[in-house]
C-alpha cells in the first residue's frame, strides 16, 4: 500500500530525475498524432465535401475522448452523449442569437452541459454502486432532451432547426481553418486526458475502475470521483457540440440525436480501446472512413453499427490500442527474459 501523500505523484515519476523523460513519454504520442493529423488538409483541401466529412470525424474524436473520461475512466455508461453535446450546442447558439459573443457563449454552453452531466452522475451514483441506474437515468435524459428540442419551438426551432449566424465570417467558416480548430480541440482534449491520468484524479479513477469496493475501502470517495468525471466529460462534450454548432451554422433535432451520436461514439471508443489515450481518435478515424465508403447504404449503416457493437463486446472488448500495447510489451519482455536466462 502506498501512503496517501504519494498517490498525488505523476505516473512513472520514480524520482525527480525521471520527471522529464516520463513527461516526454506521456505527451509524445499526442504530439505525433497532432503532427500526422495536421497534414490531412494537404491531401483533401480541394474537396469541400471530403473536408466536411473529415471535420465531422474530428468532432466525433472529441466526443469519444470526452465519453472516454466518463465511461472509460469511471465505468459510467452515459447514454446521453448526443444530448449533452446538444445542450452545449443549442444553449450556445441561443445565447449567441441574443447577442452574447461566441467566445463567451461556447464556454457557457460547456458549463451548462457540465452541470447537467454532473447532476445526472450524482443521481445515478448517489445510493448504490450500480451501473444500471446510470444507463436508465441518462437514457431517460436523452428522451427528455429530444422532446425539449422538439417542444420548445420558440427557442430551438423545433423540427426545422436553428440557424446559427455567430460563426460566419470567423475562423470557423470555410473548410481548412475550422479543421485546424477542431484538431486543436482534439489535441487539447488529449492533453487534458493525459493530465488527468497523471494527477490524483487519475489514480482515483484507476482504483475505482479496477475494484470499486477496494477503492472505497482504501479511502477513495467513489461517488465523488464519478461525479467529477461526469462533470469534466460532459463539459467537454458541451464545448465540442457548441463549437460544431457555430461551425456548421445550422443545428436541428438530428444534429445531436441518440441514434446518430451515441451509438457511433460507443462503437468508435470500443473499437479503439476503452480507457486508452489514442483509442478514441483511432476509432473515430476508422469509422469515419468506413462511413464514407458505405455512404450509399444509408439505413444499413445503422445496422452495421449495431452489428459492430455486438461483435466488439462479444469478441474484442479490449479494443485495438490496448491489444497492440500488450503485444508490444510482450515482445519487449521476451528478449529481456531471454537475456536474464542467459545470465543465469
Amino acid at each position: 500500500m502506498t501512503a496517501p501523500g504519494q498517490t498525488s505523484r505523476p505516473v512513472g515519476a520514480r524520482s525527480p530525475s525521471w520527471q522529464a523523460p516520463s513527461l516526454l513519454r506521456g505527451y509524445a504520442p499526442i504530439g505525433a498524432v497532432a503532427l500526422l493529423l495536421a497534414l490531412v488538409p494537404i491531401f483533401f483541401q480541394n474537396s469541400p465535401s471530403r473536408m466536411t466529412v473529415i471535420i465531422v470525424g474530428m468532432l466525433f474524436a472529441a466526443y469519444a475522448i470526452s465519453f472516454n473520461i466518463i465511461f472509460g475512466s469511471t465505468g459510467q455508461l452515459f447514454l446521453c452523449t448526443g444530448a449533452l453535446a446538444g445542450i452545449g450546442g443549442f444553449s450556445s447558439a441561443i445565447l449567441s442569437e441574443r447577442g452574447v459573443p461566441m467566445l463567451v457563449s461556447i464556454p457557457l454552453g460547456g458549463l451548462l452541459a457540465a452541470l447537467v452531466g454532473g447532476l445526472l452522475s450524482w443521481v445515478a451514483v448517489r445510493r448504490s454502486l450500480d451501473t444500471i441506474f446510470t444507463g436508465v437515468v441518462t437514457l431517460a435524459f436523452s428522451l427528455s432532451y429530444d422532446n425539449l428540442v422538439l417542444g420548445r419551438k420558440d427557442l430551438t426551432g423545433g423540427e426545422t432547426g436553428l440557424r446559427v449566424g455567430a460563426g460566419s465570417d470567423t475562423i470557423l467558416t470555410d473548410q481548412v481553418k475550422p479543421y485546424y480548430v477542431f484538431l486543436a480541440l482534439v489535441v487539447a482534449y488529449l492533453v487534458l486526458y493525459r493530465a488527468i491520468q497523471r494527477s490524483h484524479l487519475g489514480w482515483a479513477f484507476r482504483a475505482l475502475r479496477d475494484d470499486e469496493v477496494a477503492a472505497e475501502l482504501a479511502g477513495v470517495n467513489v461517488a465523488r470521483y464519478r461525479v467529477y468525471a461526469g462533470l469534466i466529460g460532459s463539459g467537454m462534450l458541451g464545448i465540442a457540440g457548441a463549437l460544431f454548432a457555430h461551425h456548421r451554422g445550422f443545428i436541428g433535432p438530428t444534429t445531436y440525436a441518440f441514434g446518430d451520436v451515441d451509438v457511433r461514439v460507443l462503437v468508435m471508443l470500443t473499437f479503439g480501446g476503452v480507457g486508452s489515450l489514442l483509442g478514441p481518435v483511432l476509432g473515430a478515424i476508422v469509422f469515419t472512413i468506413l462511413d464514407e465508403i458505405l455512404v450509399g447504404f444509408n439505413q444499413l449503416r445503422i445496422v452495421l453499427y449495431g452489428v459492430t457493437i455486438v461483435a466488439l463486446f462479444l469478441g474484442f472488448r479490449r479494443g485495438v490500442i490496448p491489444t497492440l500495447e500488450t503485444a508490444r510489451s510482450k515482445k519487449r519482455r521476451t528478449p529481456a527474459a531471454s537475456t536474464k536466462s542467459a545470465e543465469d
Partner: peptide, 12 residues
C-alpha cells in the same frame, strides 16, 4: 450493451 446493439440492428 449487447441489447443496445440488437436494438440498433432492429431499428436499422
Amino acid at each position: 450493451l449487447l441489447m443496445l446493439g440488437v436494438g440498433t440492428i432492429i431499428d436499422g
